[in-house]
Amino acid sequence: MRKLIEGMVISLIGLSAVWGAYQIPAAQEGETWAGLVPMIVAVCLSLGGAIIVIGGFTESTITKSNVSFRPSTTIIEVSGLAVLAFSYHYAISAFGYLLPTALVAPIALYTFGVRSPIGLAVSIVLCPLVFHTIFFELLGVFPPYGTVFDPLDLIRS
């Protein structure tokens, strides 16, 4: 069953890529088509997916997989961290680097099992401070600007 789903997902990606490659305009006289390699890759990907699907159908014996996959726990835990990651990205775009990092640092630590209130409190101050100092002050990277509100404006003014 797992092989079937894997193969179907890969085939779906491949077929979407075939459609995407098909949208690329035709080449002018004396040039090669820009969609040639994308189309070859997409077709091979679709075929690769199909091979896995066929392998899933024809597998005569049920073999034990080395991977232990427990959707109930694994997916929820990792999804939580992924949601935190996407939220952090959105928050940086809206509020700059400092504020979101101060909020996300203790949440990430808590997620990984840190329960010390002092440790979590310290991370609120220390993480944005250390990262900001290293990257934006010492290395001279231009910090991301918060479109809604950026505390860095207040600090610098």
């Binding site: 640092a105 630590l109 997620t111 990984f112 099992g113 990262f131």
Partner: peptide
Amino acid sequence: NVLYPMIFLTSFIASYS
């Protein structure tokens, strides 16, 4: 449990930089 959250935060600033 401290190392990986710090790597998590570093990955954001590293990819931005």
